[in-house]
Design a protein around this nucleic acid. Sequence first.
DNA 1: GCCTGATATTTGAAGCTTAAAACAAGCCGC
DNA 2: GCGGCTTGTTTTAAGCTTCAAATATCAGGC
Lengths: 196, 196
Amino acid sequence: MHDRVSVDETAPEPVPLDHEAKALEAPAEHAAELRLWLRLLTLSTMIEGEVRRRLRERFDVTLPRFDLMAQLVRAPDGMTLSDVSKRMMVSNGNVTGLVERLVESGHVDRRVSQTDRRAQVIRLTEEGRAAFRAMAVEHEAWIAEMLGGLDAGESEALMGLLGKVKASTRTAIDANARARTEEARTNSNAGTGGPR
Amino acid sequence: MHDRVSVDETAPEPVPLDHEAKALEAPAEHAAELRLWLRLLTLSTMIEGEVRRRLRERFDVTLPRFDLMAQLVRAPDGMTLSDVSKRMMVSNGNVTGLVERLVESGHVDRRVSQTDRRAQVIRLTEEGRAAFRAMAVEHEAWIAEMLGGLDAGESEALMGLLGKVKASTRTAIDANARARTEEARTNSNAGTGGPR
DNA sequence: GCCTGATATTTGAAGCTTAAAACAAGCCGC
DNA sequence: GCGGCTTGTTTTAAGCTTCAAATATCAGGC
């Protein structure tokens, strides 16, 4: 497989490491990926935490509400809860509660879809739109301040690399999901005596 | 009201854009940073979500518990709750509850520090260590699978760029914290009639 | 029209998370 | 050795989040 880490670790290796040492050192094969992931996670946790803090301090609003409003502001025609759920990558049940509170506070308007009686279409109210506009201006400045350490070329390079990782992550997730679906199908057939 | 029905608002529009349009387009100055942040956030959300799902599916464990155990496995002499809180970048109160549940399940051992009677020192139990070892092996493979799309050079480049962003983020956060502290000091002086 | 499977949403239980307030104990300068 | 500040932890209230189960509706095939 990927022998990237210049496989010169072959030579000695007399006594196989015991479990303990293995577990502690073990990053063995994939240390680089693990470090990358940890740095990525640390960074987004830092930024997210700071944005959360500032939103609360300056506007007394929570980050999830801001995020939801950010989705809605780009959809003047409204979105269904499912749409929001997919875009925000959170569960359906989560969105239900979030929307409930935003309707309560008058930022969001919710009505049954005219074409699908199962679905709710939600939109920002005028108040919601105004509130979001005010927040978005500062939010953007915060992000620019925090991510401002790169020049245009670096920024573009980073964007590209993140895109590449995103693609391979997507692939890994999809492959896993397919495998799970397949397994479920098989089990189901086995259980019900489906096509042998 | 909202003339959503595709007004084909392209052609005319002679007048300078109003607030609405501005707000929508406004990424104006800092569009690149905003896009970068969104991509970063999307990526870490994707990975984190998948790891969470797999940990639950394979080991019936939550991600925060895994993360806490990952901190402890590297500290055979134990850590205080505060240490953990800082390393995980979560609130103190959060750690209290998390540790409570891990002690309950027998993965973690907790005792009062011998040198500071305020502090609790926590360690993995043998069971906790064994359980973590098993999980860590798969976890590492998952990460390698998801982040596997880069060659060594790209990986290193990404690491460097993330480091750079992390540094500038750190700077921005610290500057803000200092400003807040300063403001608090000033207010406090004003209120109590401190040094003019 | 009726069944079957898919989709949209809600609900409930459990757990995670934060912020803020309350304590307890350490540290320090006088 | 006593105030006063700092640090370590817990507690509480509110909100976020997930998963899984329950509802309701839709869409197709027959």
